[in-house]
């Protein structure tokens, strides 16, 4: 199996206070990986440093054996919903069409085939009927599906999603996780920042447990145990011992 992501000795800080401390791990291709950990554990920071969206203090990140700068168009990023201006004058289908931009290069406009492909991606997430609506007119779950469709439109090798299930209805959540599992099964690598422990073991086959440093990484069965989770969450529930942390 090929190495998809390799992180070596990663250190990241914000204004002098450390966000990630000596994180190293290697993810193989074809995995659906959840990044879990308490609030402020550096989950989104890890995702952003994988994408080189923030500057790192020390360490090395490789995507499919190359630096992220060479691989940017091969990686799709779905940001947190709160980072989007939902009043922006853009329709659903045009938002999905943005996904074709990375492969178009500068100066070139999307062609008819790109538009047809964008519509296909929108059909896949099941909201093609809303394609001419302004994005703010959709529900939270539908909006998240639009952004997944946009990622699909990019035809990347790797998907990075930041908290995709926050404020999302049950149908949308099921649609999204089904598609992510399908992507994994055809050999794509999917990394998801996730904060809801209750479904983590159903959704992912590998977990990265983070609390500023890497607590544990590996198959769900290995990471998702009370003992291991307790190591990351104990500070947040000082009254509990590791074993008492309910899953």
């Amino acid at each position: 199996m090929k190495t998809a992501i390799s992180v070596k000795d990663l250190f990241v800080s914000y204004h002098g206070s450390e966000a990630l401390n000596n994180v190293s791990f290697t993810v193989n291709e074809g995995n659906l990986v959840g990044i879990i950990g308490p609030n402020g554990a550096g989950k989104s920071t890890l995702l952003k440093s994988l994408l080189n969206l923030i500057s790192i203090d020390k360490g090395e990140v490789q995507i499919l054996g190359k630096s992220i700068k060479e691989m940017r168009t091969k990686v799709a990023y779905v940001p947190q919903r709160s980072n989007i201006d939902w009043d922006f004058p853009i329709t659903v289908i045009d938002t999905v069409l943005l996904g074709t931009y990375p492969n178009l290069g500068i100066f070139k406009r999307p062609k008819k085939s790109d538009k047809a492909w964008a519509l296909e991606c929108l059909e896949k997430v099941g909201i093609a009927e809303f394609r001419h609506r302004q994005i703010g007119e959709l529900s939270g779950g539908q909006q998240q599906r639009v952004f997944l469709a946009r990622a699909l439109a990019q035809k990347p090798d790797m998907y990075f999603l930041d908290e995709p299930f926050v404020g999302v209805d049950v149908t949308s959540e099921e649609t999204i996780i089904t598609i992510l599992k399908e992507l994994r099964d055809i050999g794509k690598t999917v990394v998801v920042v996730h904060h809801d422990l209750s479904k983590a073991s159903d959704y992912f086959n590998e977990l990265i447990l983070l609390n500023k440093e890497l607590i544990e990484y590996g198959a769900v069965e290995k990471v998702f145990t009370p003992e291991v989770l307790g190591k990351a969450y104990s500070n947040h529930f000082p009254s509990m011992t590791a074993v008492e942390v309910k899953i």
Partner: peptide, 21 residues
């Protein structure tokens, strides 16, 4: 006109724009 595409994507979602380079 020439940079319409880039202006659109960076105005709407600057994180995505930065993520794809």
């Amino acid at each position: 006109y020439v940079f319409y595409k880039e202006l659109l994507v960076s105005s709407f979602d600057s994180t995505m724009a930065a993520a794809y380079g």
